[in-house]
Computed example of a mutant assay.
Amino acid sequence: MRLRSPRLLLLLFCGLRAVVAVSQEREVRAMVGSDVRLACVSLEEGSFDLNDVFVYWQISEPGKANAKSVVTYYLPENSSAGHSDNHYRDRAWLSLDSMRQGDFSLHLHNVTPQDEQKFNCLVFRKSLELRKILDVVVSLHVAANYSMPVVSGPSQDEELTFTCTSTNGYPRPNVYWINRTDGSLLDGALQSSTVSLNARGLYDVVSVLRIGRAPSVNVGCCIENVLLHQNLTSNQPEMFTGDKKSVPDGPAHDTLEAGSRPVLSVLGVLAMAVVVAVVTGWLCRNRCPHRSHTDARAARPELELAELV
């Protein structure tokens, strides 16, 4: 009787021989949307007869202990590899030419976050009484770049509230708020972050920072992708200046108008100084030889957070 189910055949092969090949384990990283090769290569020299091998790639079924789902397989009576799990149909394939050379690697197209799991390669030889000659486990780790974090705010109430958003990343991120003035990390107790999976199976993050009012606040948001060893920090300066209590209203109008007089006097002096400087510069250009000047502007150092694990 011919057994057509690849799962039944796999169970039969595993029970026929107690002696198994030495297991191998390796790890592979892939970006979402890319193609990846999960290696499963025999160390035996020489070519393989495809009528003599049975090849299975399988994964654990979610939520079922010890249950396996076949990703793709090759049976001698088939002219090409078949598929069992619909999630991998048209995405997982084996190379017949490579298998003749002992390379039974799985080629996976268009990687998704759901592919992050352990893949098991099993190869049996019929001429050796269906002995298992390969048993390889490949752990696939999936990553996706987060969008550049964007900070909005602050809302002006009894405290300052900033909101940071970043989308379409993987795996789950770490979120930090930083003090741009000295590059230090702000207390994590000041922030609350919400991380959720979107329709693509990627993570979106929204983080809210609440701090007390101050005359000057300069903060930034950092999204850390541990798998990619990557830190993305918001580009725009989130500078807030001023104090709610310093803005006068109503009755203080006369005081403000009176207080503006010394300010106008200072502005007058500054205007006169500018005129003098312009005249002096014109005279200098006519009296002094031309000299090249290097740019003396101080470059503001970019903050680069150390890897936080």
Rank of each mutant, 00 (worst) to 15 (best):
H290M: 02
L12E: 02
V269P: 05
T294R: 09
P113F: 06
C284D: 12
H109T: 07
A258T: 13
E27W: 03
T167F: 14
K68F: 12
R297S: 11
E77K: 12
D135Q: 09
S207G: 04
I211G: 00
T165Y: 01
V28Q: 10
E257C: 11
E27F: 02
Q236T: 13
T161R: 11
T163R: 00
G268H: 11
N198P: 05
R172F: 04
H141M: 06
H83Q: 13
V205M: 06
V208E: 08
G46V: 01
L130H: 13
E304Q: 05
N218T: 08
V123Q: 05
R261M: 10
L130W: 15
V123D: 07
G250K: 13
Q58T: 06
S95R: 02
R297V: 09
W177I: 12
P149M: 04
F104N: 10
S98K: 15
A21Q: 00
V142A: 06
T255I: 04
K132D: 07
A144C: 02
H109S: 14
A18E: 07
V309G: 13
A65M: 04
T161Y: 01
E158R: 12
Q191V: 01
V28Y: 05
D85K: 09
V206F: 05
N110M: 08
V137C: 02
L96K: 05
V150N: 10
E116Y: 00
H253G: 08
P76I: 00
F162Q: 08
V70P: 05
R89M: 09
L12M: 02
S69G: 11
L267A: 15
L128V: 01
C164E: 08
S192Q: 15
N66E: 10
R261V: 10
V195W: 04
E25K: 08
T241G: 14
A30M: 11
P6L: 05
V217F: 09
P215F: 06
R180V: 05
V70F: 14
R100H: 06
P248I: 13
L12F: 00
H87Q: 03
A21P: 00
S47R: 01
R7D: 12
V150Q: 14
G33R: 02
Y170F: 05
V275P: 08
D295G: 05
S155Q: 14
A67R: 07
S60E: 15
S292C: 06
S5D: 05
H290T: 01
V247L: 06
L108T: 12
R100Y: 02
L43N: 04
C288G: 00
T181V: 06
V276D: 08
D90R: 14
R4L: 13
C222L: 13
H293V: 09
S139K: 09
Y176H: 03
S207A: 07
F13G: 03
E44I: 07
H293N: 04
E129L: 15
T72V: 07
R131E: 06
P301C: 00
S69L: 14
V41G: 09
L308E: 11
